[in-house]
Structure formats: C-alpha cells, structure tokens
Design a protein around this nucleic acid. Structure first.
Lengths: 271, 271
DNA sequence: TTCATCGTCTCATTATATGGGACGTTAAAT
DNA sequence: ATTTAACGTCCCATATAATGAGACGATGAA
C-alpha cells in the first residue's frame, strides 16, 4: 500500500507542519486518523514522537477518536491503536453515490470480465492519485485481489496514465512539476521527456499499459473514462498476474477495453 | 445503502445530541463527515437544519474539512458537499492490515467461489453492524455487486446472525436491549423470542440463512469466523439473487461454507 | 532488582470555538 | 419583470475548550 503514498508523502511533509489557526483540533484529529491507518497498530508515545506533537495532546485526541468510533485499541497493557471500520463505511457511501459511475460501470465491467476472463478494475481520480473503487473478479483462479481503497500515483498504473494522457494541458504541467519516481524505487526519477512521450503514445492508441506493478506483480491495460464536459476523471483497467498477462495478451484485449470505457463514458453523459 | 443505517439510526439519534465537553469540535467534524456521506450531495443550510446546529458552525467546519481533504464541493453557485476519496483510502489501509483476516480468507474464498460458482462475501463486525470488507465475484453473470463498505445490522444478514448466535451471553443481552426492526420496515419490530429461537437454530446447525435482503433482493447463507480466543468477529457468506438462490440451494451449499469458515478461523489462529 | 519508557491525568494559561446576526446573492414564486 | 424567501458567507464579542509541561504509578527490558 505504500506505493500510493510515495509521491504524496513529499507534499504531506508540509501538511505535517503544525498550523496554528482555525479548526486546528479538527485538523490534528484527522491527521491522527490518517497516520494511525498508515502505522497501525501503533502506540501513543510513538505516534506523538513521529508527529512531533506533545504526548498529552495526542493522548487526548486518541481518547476522543475512540469515543467517536473512528479508532480502536487492543486490550494490551500497552494499548496499540488502529482505525475502526468507520472510514470504510463512510467511504463506501461516498462510492455508492459518487457513482452514477459505479452504476453505469457495473454491467459493462461484468460483460467485459466475461469476454476476457480477467479481473476488471474501476479507479477514481483523487488529486494526484487514482483510487480503486470497484473490482470485478475474473473467472480464472490465482487472481490478484487488490483491496478496494488501494491507491497509486497517476504515473504508475495503466488507468492512471490513460487519465493523465487526456488531462487539460495546464493540469498536466502542474502534475509534472513534482518529480515522479519509478515504481519499486524511491530514488529513480522518471525523466519528464520520457513520460511525455509515453503519454503521446497513449493518446494516439487510446489505452495505456503497465507491466509488473507492485505490490502483487500485476500487469494491466487501462483506458480513461470521461465526464460530460470531456474531462477524464476515472479509469477502467484489465488486470492480471504479470506472468500470465504479457504485453501481447494485453494488446489483444485493447479493443474490447476501449469500447467498454467509451460505453461507460457515454452512459455517464446521459443523466 | 439505507439498510445499514436503519437500526443504527435509532441509536444515533442520541449521538446526535450535542454534548458539550472535551473534543467537541472534533466530534462535530466527524459527525459532519458521516452525515455528508449519508446525505450527499447536500447543502450547508440543509445540513445545519438536520443536525440542529447553527449555520455558522456548520459552515466553518465544512470549510475546514475541505481544507483537510475530507470533503469536496461541486462548483455550483449553491455549493453542494460530498465526501472525498480520503475515507476510502484510509479505510483501505485499515482493511489491508486488520486482516491477517483478509490474507487468510482470500484463497479460501476463491476456492469456495469456484466450488459453488456464487459470490463470496467477507464481513467484519463493527459494533452492532457487520461491514462488507471483501467480495469475490461468482462466475455467473447477473450477479449482485454490493460495494465494499456496505453495512447491515447484525440481525439482518446471514453472516451477521451467525456472529450473533455465537456471541458471549452478556454482549448478546446488551444487543437485544434495543429493538431490532425487520428489514424493509422501519416499524415492524422483531420479537426477541423469535430472534432467540432463530439464534438457537443457527448455533445447532452452524450456519444462518437470510432471504431477500435489501437493497438488491439477495439471499445468502452465512457462517461465523472466530479469533484465537474463540470469539466471533467476522462472517463469511455465499450471496446471490433471491430468485436463483432459494432455500434448498442454500442448504446444499451449507457444508462447503461451514468448512471454509472453519478453515479461515484456523488460519487466523496460527499467527 | 534497576531503570528507561510507557500510558494516564491534572491544571493554569492561552487559544480557539461558538453562534447571533448582518450582508450580498441566488433562484423560485408571483 | 418583480418580489421574496432561502442561501452562502462573514464578522466579532463572549464562552468554552485546547494546550502542553510535568507528575505519577505501571510496565517491560536489562
């Protein structure tokens, strides 16, 4: 799950500053929830140290978040904290609604998985990431079961790249301002020129390909989904284990995938 | 998605009270997030009215939550609010970790869906609800695709009831203190005696059955999953459309389901 | 047994939340 | 086209809660 954060982390270093001002307690509490999710199970002192916050403040907030049902602790003599099911329940509702998309996509996704036998992923853009919001499993066994909520940098996954390729120029420029790292690496920066070339190819072909993406070495082919105004906001992809889905197999699936993505875009435009 | 809240709503009426005291702003903010998720897209005044809070307070919190990335508004002249992808991303991490369960369950679930051809659901207990955290789709078409994050009252779903049946006496008593409504009804209370009888039957047989559960009329057979200490904390179920999965079909699947649930429990006890 | 570290709690001080109400704007009703 | 009720937004004096240093006993490692 780290991959989704990699690029986000750099920016969050600033967020982790300690902004005095309005709604500070709320901000602290939410940051606490996010960090507990990341580091769970984690102790109070450890948390305070990593966030550079006073122990007493963290402790008080932890108790509050427990009361409100967002955090839980195990029963040990040195309590360790983790997040409850609340965020998932809340987020599930978000997806349920947010998605005319989900409704428009489901039948198409189901059809696609029967045509191809592979797993179909639906991702929604969230800032500079793409978040997996729905998955329909292929009929084959030995599948890759990524959990809903997994997120990747837009420059990583095939669906992310296909969204990137059709983004308004200004937004893309802004995205390219911060360096993008190659998957599996935290130091190896992708040259901007290389990324631009790939995006140009994606625009031309109408789909993107990714091979061997962590965590579970999976390969995928992805296409963008557009809203009424023609802006890409989601991605559809066919995903499978790298050793079974090689580039030629992926290319063979391209026409079906592109057709499915277009059908969803059209379905979304008809509200 | 309403079904998950139905019974919860009664209790939340009290939560919705306005407790002065420590961490009040945090509590208000979190309640706001939960309610926005429930009612989205929703306007500020509407929200304030429904929560019986001053407009100014709600407005200030909305702006803060937007800053922190938990809420978003559309661009209309009368902004409507909805939740962002943040909760899903946070919750996804929760699941990722929480689940030795997920890891232990996945291969068993995959095997089970191949044996039966039906969709397999994995739910985790969250207070008095059970939350769908993982779904593996059956190989048949015309499936029911419930989104991860959907939650039901424990007395509703088959997996919930099977958890209830094996709960410690004290906890069960506490659960039965508040009245439980029949699904699809907001007034029709299930007699406690009837519920007790059903739970006794479930204990005896080792599995529970539910027919025609909303939102998508689905029927299911469920069994509980236990932790090392023998406490039920999750549920496994086979779910399908009501018109295809009748009681006799469900009963035929029982032995396989019970075996799978037991295998997961054992897998969990071996850390 | 020693001892550093942990979770927990208190309290005087400081900072923020609070919400009534005013203002300009929007959109529905007339 | 005009009216009007409801909306989003913001200000500001007051009430309220957040803050964090430090104390304490409990825990687990050395």
């Amino acid at each position: 799950m780290d991959q989704g954060k990699q690029s986000g982390e750099a920016k969050r270093a600033t967020d982790d500053a300690d902004p005095r001002g309005p709604s500070r307690p709320v901000g602290l509490a939410l940051r606490l929830v996010e960090r507990v999710a990341e580091w769970q199970p984690v102790g109070a002192s450890d948390l305070a140290r990593r966030l550079a916050l006073p122990k007493a403040t963290v402790h008080r907030l932890l108790l509050a978040l427990e009361t409100f049902g967002w955090l839980e602790r195990d029963g040990g003599s040195r309590p360790l904290w983790s997040v409850s099911m609340r965020p998932i329940a809340v987020g599930g509702r978000a997806i349920e609604w947010k998605s005319g998309l989900r409704i428009a996509a489901l039948s198409v996704m189901d059809a696609l998985r029967h045509e191809t036998g592979e797993s179909i992923h639906l991702g929604l853009v969230d800032g500079e990431n793409i978040v997996l919001i729905e998955r329909i499993d292929g009929v084959n066994s030995v599948n890759i079961f990524l959990p809903v909520g997994t997120s990747w940098d837009l420059s990583w996954s095939s669906s992310g790249k296909s969204v990137l390729a059709h983004m308004p120029e200004a937004e893309l420029e802004n995205f390219l301002k911060t360096p993008r790292y190659r998957r599996k690496s935290e130091t190896d920066i992708i040259p901007v020129a290389e990324l631009r070339d790939e995006l140009a190819l994606i625009r031309e072909r109408g789909f993107a390909i990714s091979v061997g993406v962590p965590p579970a070495a999976s390969s995928s082919i992805g296409a963008a989904i557009f809203d009424k105004r023609g802006k890409p906001f989601a991605g559809l992809s066919i995903t499978g284990a790298s050793d079974r889905l090689r580039e030629e197999q992926l290319l063979a699936l391209a026409p079906r995938l592109v057709a499915a993505a277009r059908r969803i875009s059209i379905g979304m435009s008809m509200d």
